[in-house]
Structures are given as structure tokens and as C-alpha cells.
Design a protein around this nucleic acid. Sequence first.
DNA 1: CCCTGATTCGC
DNA 2: GCGAATCAGG
Length: 227
Amino acid sequence: MSWTDERIATLKKMWEGGSTASQIADELGGVSRNAVIGKAHRLGLKARPSPVKPNEDKPEAKKAAAPIAKAPVKKAAAPVAPPRPAPAPTAPAAEARPAPRSDIPSQPLPNPTPDLPKIVSVGPGGFLRQGPGDQQAPIPPAPPRRLVPAKPSPEIADKTSLLDLSDKVCRWPMGHPGEPDFHFCGQAVNPGFPYCVEHCGRAYQAQLPRGARRPPPPLPFGGPRVR
DNA sequence: CCCTGATTCGC
DNA sequence: GCGAATCAGG
């Protein structure tokens, strides 16, 4: 498959609309997720929440930046001795732990307020006994909820979604990608164009000479042929 | 393991 | 320019 204008347009719409690369890929068909991502980047699209890009160092360099590059070094074996990073000079007081006991469950709730040590005892079944003041209202009152049968979305129920696009349907976007009611025009296309007659008029406007304002700009195409 | 996007690099 | 391979976080 090749990246035709239409496929690129679909890629852009979906990418900017928040679709994942996988979704875009199998919507387009014939391309892999990687291909979509690669193409998107080559198109200049990018900066979508990536799971592996938390932050970036700002160009402030207080000290000389370490000359060590990232050095991806795929599989190049480094015959040198394995690096032995010095152990962190922290943790001066690693307290000795008492021997772990397995017969009694350790207290799971470290008391944040040592001033008021809570008295907790262990019941026969291993549960923690609570004092009268320990009640915390963990009782989840059954929320009176009314579950509504899942609908795709009442907003776009009979609107033309991205998946409904075809060569016969107007691709004029209605609304903005990412909004819940974003959809496409869906009218029958003006033959030979990706839009219906009305939106062809929006998409292709003749450049009129300055000052030459004619109230009815004639459509250069489409419309019922008058003969 | 599954998913995600980013990046690299041979083609 | 393309995308598989790979990386790396969730």
C-alpha cells in the first residue's frame, strides 16, 4: 500500500482525533501500526501522550553536561568489564529488622500519628480487632444507580463517523476532532470530489479579483445540470 | 504478556 | 520516504 492523499488525510484526522496508531492502522488496512506512527512523525504530527516520554530536560545546563551520550548500542557487545557503579552513599541507618514472623500478620497500617498509638489486637481468624474509635465509616452505602443500556453514543447515533466514510460519501468534517459529536457530512458526494456539492462550494472557492464582489458566486461545478 | 508511542536504521 | 525492529513505560 502507498500513502495516497486520502489515506494521509484519514491518518491525520484519526491521529489528531486521538485514535491510537493501531486503530488507524487497521482502519486504513494494509499498513502496520509502526507504519502509521512512522508516517505520522514524518508528516510532522506528533506530541501525543506517549507512555515513554515523561519529561525532557530543559536546556539549562548548570554544570557541564555529562559527555556520556545515550549510546543506544543495540547489540554491540561491550567486551569491557561490566560497569560497577559505586553504591549510593546513603542509608546510613538501616535498622536491623527483627526476624520476620509468619505466624502473626504484621500490622498492615503503620500508624502515621505515633502520638496516639492505636491498640490493635489480632483476632482468632487473623483479623485486626478495632477499638470503638476506629470506626471509619467504610460502609459504602449502596449507591442508587440506574444503569442505562450502553449506547454507542446518542450524539453520533446516526451521524457519519470516520468508519462510515467511503468514496461515495461527503467527507466534510462537522465539528472538531475529539469532540463527542464529531462526525462527517455524509451526503452523497459530488461525483469526482470528496465532498458533496454544498461542501465542494466551501472547499473550492474561486479567487475573485479584489473588489469584484458578486453576490451569487457561481459554483464552478456540481449542481443539477441545466440544459 | 498485552498495550502504547518513539526511535533507529537498512532499504 | 518507508516500515520492521527495537526500545521503553503503563
